[in-house]
């Protein structure tokens, strides 16, 4: 049994056996809420390996596309620095810095380039939130 499956089983036990056996309202609610939490956590853990692979591929593709879109050498320095960080360590915090730098550089970039940049970033963000919704919804 994987960790995810174990949590799913714990969730079912809490929901079907423990919760119904509790009479007091507050602890009963807590038991059912614990069932919800373990169920979601179980799904999140079970999906994590596939999600990590997908995110790495998404971030790598994003970096390549932003390079093409931006003409790296002429990009505003703050955005260029953020992209360098994202390239060296492609994770959510560095992607956040790219987004902040893109907005901060909006005037320098010109509107068309900014919109194209954000449209491409948002493709990646949509894919990421769709993955999160697989366990959060």
């Amino acid at each position: 049994m994987t960790d995810g499956e174990l949590l799913q089983r714990l969730s079912r036990t809490l929901k079907q056996k423990i919760g119904p056996a509790i009479e007091d309202e507050y602890p009963k609610t807590q038991a059912f809420m614990a069932a919800v939490v373990t169920e979601k956590l179980g799904r999140q853990i079970a999906l994590a390996p596939a999600h990590e692979v997908a995110q790495r591929a998404e971030f790598s593709a994003l970096l390549g596309d932003l390079d093409d879109l931006l003409d790296f050498k002429s990009a505003p320095p703050a955005l260029r620095d953020a992209l360098v960080d994202f390239g060296e360590n492609p994770d959510k915090p560095t992607l956040c810095r790219v987004i902040e730098a893109a907005y901060a550089s909006r005037q320098i970039l010109d509107e068309m380039r900014f919109r194209k940049l954000m449209a491409r970033i948002r493709v990646t963000l949509r894919a990421d939130i769709d993955r999160q919704m697989e366990y959060a919804a």
Binding site: T29, M33, L125, A136
Partner: peptide, 23 residues
């Protein structure tokens, strides 16, 4: 534990925000 549960409400809100922003 109801507070712990809200950690999974964050993606739900952000998904909605993404739709509001057009993606």
């Amino acid at each position: 534990i109801r507070l712990a549960r809200t950690a999974w409400s964050i993606p739900v809100v952000l998904e909605r925000a993404a739709r509001d922003l057009g993606y």
